[in-house]
Simulated assay, not measured.
Amino acid sequence: MPATTPTDREVVAARLLAGSIKRSYNPVVDLDWDAPLVEGRYFLPPTVLSLYGTPMWESMSEGQRIELSRQEAANILSVGTWFENILLQALLRDLLHRDPTSLQTRYTLTEMGDECRHMTMFARTIAAMGAKPFQLRPHQAVVANLLSKTFRGTMLWVAALIGEEIFDATQRRVQNDPQLQPMMSRVMRIHVTEEARHIRFAREGVRSRVAQTHPIEKAWVGTVQGIGGLLLQRLFTNPAIYERTGLDVREARRQALANPHFRENQRRGFDGLAAFLQENGLMRAPSRAMWRRSGFL
């Protein structure tokens, strides 16, 4: 694929700005927060839950399965809030060094506005689900704040894609599932619509940086970005999910990590991003090994 030049990025930014004007959402008014939950509906489809198809899943009642979906959904929304907070910090630092009059800067600020609304939407969704958010532990908060300082150059845009594409791919597959709570379907549709623009901008950022950056930076990013897979695996199987559902935490997490259905969902979510990273020379052997170890390859 041809390298993207700075001028190309301005053209892309202009298109994304136009798209944002035509189709953006305000979750405060675009979601009916007073609508009651539908009895017997899931908060995530059963097939994407970490325990689906395991012996523990077969022993669970329908009520326990729905509760597991509530807790896994609350966990994913919490993780999404953490990531978007980290991304916003990194984008603000990056903007200090950018031309404030450029279209790229204008779109970055537009994206940041989207992400602030998404964080509000995630928080209100967790509350409307009747769940509690999952909080960072003190040592995790330290790591999160340090991560935002390391997201620079190529790594900034690769990290953005890791945080956005895997969730986006899954949401696209399940947003219209008839077993979902209507509120969850609506949240996913809003998020998918706006994340499509964010992903396009981040991909163009990667292509632009790869075309211009020093080979050492490219090699470094390609070598360490696989840490994202290890972090996501841990976050997706947060022991607190199973504790809140009333399950044997150690056994539930063991079965989840060994669950072929869960690993297949991870791989399907990562397929598109894995191909993109490979295409741009950013999938080196150490990262490939980490993604494979964490079940995404």
Score class of each variant (00 low, 15 high):
I21L: 14
D32A: 13
T54F: 01
L49V: 05
V29N: 08
L37Y: 00
W33C: 07
S61N: 06
R41S: 11
S59G: 11
G63M: 08
L49I: 10
S69T: 05
R65Y: 05
K22C: 13
W57N: 02
E58Y: 07
T54I: 06
W57V: 02
D30I: 05
D34M: 09
I21G: 10
L68T: 02
P45I: 03
V48I: 15
W57P: 00
M60W: 05
S50R: 12
M60V: 05
Q64T: 10
G63T: 14
V28W: 14
M60Y: 07
T54W: 06
M60S: 02
V28D: 13
K22Y: 12
L37G: 00
T47Q: 15
I66A: 10
W33Q: 08
L31C: 10
M60H: 06
T47V: 13
E58D: 15
I21T: 15
N26A: 12
T54E: 06
R65H: 04
N26G: 07
V28Q: 14
A35S: 11
W57R: 00
P36I: 07
I66W: 03
K22R: 15
W57K: 01
P36K: 07
Y25H: 15
G40A: 08
S24H: 15
P36S: 03
S24C: 12
S24Y: 11
S61K: 03
F43Y: 15
L49E: 12
G63Y: 09
D32M: 04
P27G: 11
R65G: 01
V48F: 02
S59H: 11
L31F: 07
R65K: 15
P45E: 04
P46K: 00
T47K: 15
L37K: 01
M56I: 14
P55K: 09
D34K: 12
V28H: 10
P27S: 09
M60C: 09
A35L: 03
L31Q: 07
S24W: 11
S50W: 01
D32P: 01
Y42H: 12
P36D: 12
Y52R: 02
R65I: 00
L37S: 03
E58G: 11
F43L: 09
D30P: 02
L44T: 04
L37T: 00
S61L: 09
F43W: 13
S24M: 06
Y42C: 07
L51A: 04
G53D: 02
F43A: 04
Q64N: 09
L44Y: 02
P27T: 06
P45G: 09
V38A: 09
L68H: 04
K22W: 14
N26R: 13
P45F: 04
E62W: 03
L44I: 01
E39S: 11
I21F: 09
N26K: 13
A35Y: 01
W33S: 06
E39W: 07
P55H: 11
N26C: 14
G63F: 10
G63H: 11
A35D: 10
L68D: 03
E62A: 14
T47F: 11
M60T: 05
R41H: 15
N26T: 13
E58P: 00
M60F: 06
E39M: 08
E58W: 06
W33L: 03
E58Q: 13
T54Q: 03
S61A: 06
E67G: 03
I21M: 14
R41L: 06
